[in-house]
Write a protein that binds this DNA or RNA. Sequence first.
DNA 1: ACACTGCATGTGTGC
DNA 2: CACACATGCAGTGTC
Length: 851
Amino acid sequence: MGSKICMNASCQTATTHEWKRGWPLRSGGHALLCYNCGSAYEDSLFCDTFHSEEPGWRECNICSKHLHCGCIASKFLLELLDYGGVGCASCARSWRLHLMQSDENPNGFSFLARNNAGDSESIPVENTVAGNNNNEGGLPQLCRLLEANEPGLLHPPKRASTNGGLVQFKQEEIMHATGDIGTGFSNVTQPSIGSPKFAKPDNMSSLLDMRDMHSSLSQPSLNMELGAPSGTTNFVTFPDGTVEGREHTPSSFQQGQRSRPILLKPSKPGVSTSSENNKGAASELRIARPPAEGRGKNQLLPRYWPRITDQELQQLSGDLNSNIVPLFEKILSASDAGRIGRLVLPKACAEAYFPPIAQSEGIPVRIQDIKGREWTFQFRFWPNNNSRMYVLEGVTPCIQSMQLKAGDTITFSRIDPGGKLVMGFRRSTNNDEDTQDIQASGLPNCTASGETSFSADGDIGWNNSENHRGRINGDLLQQRTASTEKKRTRNIGPKSKRLLMHSEDAMELRLTWEEAQELLRPPPSMKPTIVTIEDHEFEEYDEPPVFGKRTIFTSRSSWGKEQWAQCDDCSKWRKLPVDALLPPKWTCSENTWDSSRCTCFAPEEMTSKDLDNVLRVSKDFKKRRNLESQKRFQEWEPSGLDALATVAVSGDNLDDPSVGATTKHPRHRPGCTCIVCIQPPSGKGKHKPTCTCNVCMTVKRRFKTLMLRKKKRLSEREAEISQKDCMDHKEESEMNGTMSHQVLHVNNSDTEGNQSQRQIEKIETSGEKIDLNCHPNKEDMSLDVPRLSTLNLVDTANSPLDNYTKQNGFSSLVWDEQGGAAQHGGDSLKRLSDEAFLAATIGWTHESRRD
DNA sequence: ACACTGCATGTGTGC
DNA sequence: CACACATGCAGTGTC
């Protein structure tokens, strides 16, 4: 550790001296402590190239000149810049001079280059960008410096290699360090912060983000109260622009968390801090801050760091006439905000800020809300995987009182003196938006976009976001259409990605489902029941179909329609009869249709050229079909069954009224196998009514079978009823108005009814609707559907889907709440209905036409 | 039927 | 890979 120069401006003249190993760093290394002055550094900050004898070329991050640095003596040629990278001596000097001139304001931005013995003392971070913001001329250079630190943030990473010796930190680490240097909370007098008003062109967003960061740093001595009640802070400016507020007790464990220097770089686009830019005041910037003291605070994940702004804090402290020490916050999950009344507390937070509990039953804790009301919750834990899971029970009244929803943030603070817990909240501005972006960021900062301005009536602490909502509403107006769909993906916190799915993903599933339909095969081991309907024999299975082997169909003019399958062993393609159904695993040996090619040794029937053509055609067809399907999907706003099915796929919260398009099916859950849920999520338009694919034909046949079964049950039932109470039946018929008289010819060879039946019945064709929760094979289904008679079953069986849907209100079920029937027209309705039955039916049985 | 309770389980994330 | 945690779910209680 010898030849490193302490970068403390007052110490660096000592050039090389001894270093001692300090506390462990998050990066895995250890801090280096200067024996001379005690300044701590991260070892990796020392540019090996710069300080070693190894020569290397460096690019000045200001003038872009390429300079050669080879040894320690070259420090007079190159200077490490505070914001990273290196600059040639002349540029760095002029830059410093420029800054000093503009730094008449003591809060100005001090750009310390390290290798200048004449430089002033390293200064705390509060003298940062903020004060320099009115210096328009400095911004471009600042951009360059930023770029030096984070190539790619401002521009494509073209010079990353030039700064190879400089560390770059992740966002979280920045945030961590942000708090380390003194952005803890203090309700005591805070010095006036520059609160600069940036003239803010959009392309300055990165800078503004950085300003946000700096602004957050612009609160001196705050950590003195919370993190380090005593001791002095020695701020060390690091050569890459990092600054450390360090206490003169480097051996303390807390220093371990404080050892990380701060890299002053802009937050990444989309991170919440930028959302606050409009406010202008630095004190309103919502920056995650490390929590106050408490057991285990060092393990507290940044996502739980409170993001109260200083302004809010000051006002809150003033309102409560107390010192408020923000402890942690949590984004409410669906479970937290649900009626179950249990709020899961982050373990670290619970153990740090709540009373220790030994028994699972826990203890009651009293928490005051921002209105001063006091709530009593049961603070307890559940054993969980040799750990504990802490919950607050009985929070429902409080949650409801605050009208909190999943995605809102609940904050916990402590009132000093007294140590009383106080809870506030902050509403998510994303309640009506797709929050997957937030979640995709993986940073809880994003939720900090929740505005926390105070309400006019002071009703709520740092929670009310109406103003902000109003502001963003305008911005979001044009996204309204999209958000309608996005409503279904409510923010349930950064950890709840599991059930979220982008529409593109759903689209993928839709296609997959469609393709899967073509692969359905009868269950292999099941013996079918033979049903003869209208001279056609059908196999009916009690077990659901299984996936069969995928084949491709060709239609070449010279050969006619063909089906081709690939052997699982030899991968050769074999021609099959068009109606052949293959098991999932199929080999040449099972090619019973062509004895000359029933072994893998037999050559392929097609030449490789033909095969390529076939495969290409098949691929093109599929691609075209997918495009068409996507097009339809884009044109058609998901609704009705489709929306429900999509929701089924995405597993969204069905309590969300925005999903209520199919609230007639309230019991839907992901994985539900009811008639609605098992339909393909693709909705309408995939199979035309005239489609003659295997599945469609199967389903249509199946539909006829269902009708016949229904008819049989009905006739038996009604015969029984008519015997019992002819009068009742008559009255009922009269009440139901319009009658439809039809005749059904049935040739049912079902084992139960070998004899053909011919019955004529009267039915009502009222507007009752089918209950899609009912299994059609259940006996009681007849109670849920309009009481069909054989009269209309004849017609139903002949043109089944159209009539059935119309007569039984199925269409209204699908479209009523969408108002979509009129818009989409009868054809759409027909297709949708067809598919609903198509999908519904194949879920239960699968028939194959025997003849 | 619904609510409540306690635990189990699966997923995402941090180390 | 271990842990945290969101949520599912079975058992039980209550109306």
